[in-house]
Design a protein around this nucleic acid. Structure first.
Length: 762
DNA sequence: CGATTGGGAT
């Protein structure tokens, strides 16, 4: 600093310390101010006892020299004097606004090397890092406090543990527990809330026994469980479908003298709805009314969702009307749930109608509403309409979110448009969304579909190293993939690996392994897994039972299949269309057509739902037996019920006629099909051929091949940037690449993510 | 600590 400058500094300090309106009196001198001067001013000891002046100077520098206020040293000269005047909340907002635009963590190193690192400064920094979504840096500061033998406040500890638990990255929950133990060692006295956070962590890891054991353990610290404690565990037990243990825990809660509140009841209602036990759910509602707790929008919404899950949409809509009468007004979630229900059960017109209706009733669609529509278009393979919907969504002022992008990526993958899927990943990243486990699992599934199991396994490992949370779905996807290619060993190995990692399989993952074993003709082993899941407290789903019944049929064990069917139907098993179709096709395959017909009639007279598959099963079998009259009768019946006929129906008839050599009838049927405009089979075949030939064309294009080979090679060498350069060039030239290339590029984007926490040196 | 949307199973 020049002599002149230090003179200016001196006079400015004088003005600032003697004036009543220090910063206003500075106005005439504003042109003289430089970043250096401002930095010197805020670091000047004479101003350290004037916190409001310091804060004003900070504001001033924000408008004059934005780059100065984003320098760590500037901020760190301000904080200690403010702290010494107890301006804690001001410090926190300064820190938070700084951290919100500090992606490179420039502050952190300066902070840990700061000469006057007081305890309050450390604590405020811990909380600020946690609040800005970087609990790991908060943890580093906590560990620094530990080394400096500074005892943190309970609030700081709770804050940090909470952050580690709720921003789950690899091992962060374990680290949260470590912080708890360290805090105890440092002499911190925990409160019930501390334990509630830890319990939430256990629940998120699926470690319910540990969660429950904390209820006893907290007493040693003079803490007692409250409603939050129990509601937390209940919520996660219900989420995982462990209703039996939830009921036991509710009992325990009551015995402890705690009074279940509305949330407690709603958690159970939602739990029963999720597993499809609607009767139990309404029993819970009776129970809550008995205890003078009235159902609210949440209760109704969950019940409506339960009904939708069972396909009982009309009843769900009735329930919405009932809400209106009871003045519990349906909200956007109610409508979203119903809209989703309609789409899920193939009533898209009603779905769209409801979107209009909600608007008329003054309920505005939100991102979720649009996402539901996008999902439906994706499921229908109408990707152009899906992206058109996203445009509409943006037009109405709503931004696509993670769910939107993941839905689109998955849609494009399923539609085989891998170039578009890759492009969407790029868009997602540009909009600031990191790819997550769901994106990863989508890609894993795509790899499995392509039978690239080795690549899928490799991706699982590298993604895990790059900090992705590998979950039960990731494993389930690979396990299903290995079963599909007949590699039972590898599938079982992954299952065991998953269990060793204490990743808790849900009913769906159990269904995967049960299905895999059944497919290999090992139904008895599958029963073993069924017992295992029961022991773990899970409730089998209809799929579980159906899969096993199917397994017995595959082994030709018809009696065993029915024995199992009857036994389970006495319990919680509610046979559905799938069950019906499995039984019918099983009987037919065993040549027991008469029994099948009997069952078919019995099923219909019970008023149970059947679908096109049911008809096709019977029609196919009747045709094979030469009973064409009966078959044609069913065809017209399915036509009446709007369940077909479809390509499978025609194929069944044509195949049977062909192999019976009844060419005359064959021609008749074909001409009837042409008449009815049903030339699907032929057109479909030629379409498939078109797709195939165009793919071959693409792949045999020398330009495309050369680029593909080059990109794959570069990606394998880890030279992703070079690969991208070639990709861009080929893209500009309009060269289409093959599937494998796009997959490799997508893997590259997944892997590009930063690894697990960088440990910072100080 | 509770409801709707995204990834895996018949």
């Amino acid at each position: 600093m020049s002599k002149a400058e230090s003179e200016v500094l001196k006079s400015l300090i004088k003005i600032l310390t003697s004036s009543k309106n220090p910063v206003d009196s500075l106005t005439p001198y504003t042109p003289l101010l430089t970043p250096t001067l401002l930095q010197s001013l805020v670091s000047s000891p004479s101003l350290s006892s004037h916190p409001s002046t310091l804060l004003s100077l900070h504001k001033l520098s924000l408008s004059l020299f934005p780059s100065l206020s984003s320098s760590p040293s500037f901020l760190l000269s301000l904080l200690p004097p403010l702290i010494s005047r107890y301006k804690f909340s001001e410090c926190k907002s300064l820190l938070l606004s700084f951290l919100s635009s500090d992606p490179q963590n420039t502050l952190f190193t300066s902070l840990v090397h700061h000469p006057s690192l007081s305890k309050p400064l450390l604590e405020i920094s811990v909380s600020s890092y946690v609040q800005s979504g970087k609990p790991h840096l908060g943890l580093e500061l906590f560990n620094l406090m530990k080394r400096l033998k500074k005892k943190p406040n309970l609030l700081t500890c709770n804050n940090l543990i909470n952050g580690l638990v709720k921003f789950p990255s690899l091992h962060s929950i374990q680290l949260g527990k470590q912080v708890f133990h360290d805090s105890i060692t440092l002499g911190v006295i925990p409160e019930t809330s501390t334990f509630n956070i830890l319990i939430l962590g256990c629940c998120l890891e699926g470690k319910f026994n540990e969660a429950i054991s904390f209820i006893e353990k907290m007493k040693d610290f003079g803490c007692f469980p409250d409603n939050v404690t129990y509601n937390t565990i209940l919520a996660y037990l219900c989420k995982k479908g462990m209703l039996k243990e939830a009921r036991d825990l509710l009992q325990d809660m009551k015995e402890k003298g705690l009074i279940p509140n509305r949330k407690t009841y709603n958690i159970l209602v939602s739990g029963y709805c999720r597993i499809g036990w609607l009767k139990e759910a309404s029993k819970i509602i009776d129970l809550m009314v008995q205890n003078d707790v009235l159902p609210d929008v949440w209760t109704y919404n969950m019940l409506i969702n339960g009904l939708c899950g069972e396909g009982r949409i009309e009843e769900a809509v009735k329930l919405r009307d009932e809400m209106e009468n009871l003045k519990v007004l349906p909200d956007v979630v109610t409508y979203n749930t119903l809209i989703n229900g309609y789409f899920e059960w193939g009533c898209s017109e009603e779905g769209f109608r409801l979107v209009e209706e909600m608007r008329e009733k003054g309920v505005e669609p939100i991102a979720v509403t649009h996402n539901i529509l996008v999902k439906w278009y994706c499921k229908e393979g109408k990707m152009d309409e899906a992206s058109e919907r996203v445009r509409v969504m943006e037009e109405s002022g709503l931004s696509p979110d993670k769910v939107t992008y993941n839905t689109l990526i998955n849609g494009y993958c399923k539609a085989g448009k891998l170039a578009e899927a890759f492009r969407m990943m790029g868009v997602m990243l540009r909009k600031g969304f990191k790819m997550d486990t769901i994106t990863l699992n989508t890609l894993l599934h795509t790899l499995c579909e392509e039978r690239k199991l080795k690549k899928a396994s490799e991706l699982l490992i590298t993604a895990s190293k790059r900090g992705y949370l590998i979950d039960e779905v990731s494993y389930g996807t690979l396990i299903a993939g290995y079963f599909k290619v007949g590699n039972e060993d590898k599938a079982m190995k992954l299952w065991n690996e998953m269990k060793e990692k204490e990743i808790i399989p849900s009913i769906v993952t159990y269904n995967t392994i049960i299905g895999g074993l059944c497919q290999l003709g090992k139904t008895e082993q599958a029963i073993g897994k069924l017992n295992e899941l029961l022991e773990s407290g899970l409730v089998p789903a209809e799929t579980t039972y159906n899969t096993i019944i199917h397994g017995y049929f595959k082994e030709g064990k018809v009696e065993k299949a029915f024995e199992f069917y009857n036994k389970m139907a006495k319990n919680s098993f509610k046979p559905d269309v799938f069950t019906c179709n499995i039984l019918l096709s099983g009987l037919c395959r065993e040549g027991m057509l008469e029994k099948a017909l009997k069952l078919f009639d019995a099923w219909i007279s019970k008023g149970k739902a059947i679908d096109g598959v049911t008809y096709n099963t019977m029609i196919s079998s009747l045709c094979k037996e030469g009973r064409y009259e009966a078959a044609y009768h069913l065809v017209s019946e399915m036509k009446e019920r709007n369940l077909g006929p479809d390509n499978y129906t025609y194929k069944a008839i044509l195949d049977a006629l062909t192999s019976a050599g009844r060419m005359k009838e064959l021609e008749e049927v074909i001409s009837k099909m042409v008449e009815a405009g049903k030339v699907h089979e032929q057109s479909l075949q030629s379409k498939e051929q078109n797709v195939k030939t165009s793919e071959i064309l693409k792949e045999s294009d020398p330009d495309s091949n050369a680029c593909s080979v080059q990109i794959i090679e570069l990606c394998n060498q880890g030279r992703y940037k070079d690969a991208m350069r070639i990709f861009r060039v080929s893209n500009e030239k309009g060269v289409a690449l093959n599937k494998s290339t796009y997959i490799v590029l997508m893997e590259g984007l997944i892997k590009r993510r930063k690894g697990t926490t960088k440990s910072v040196q100080y």
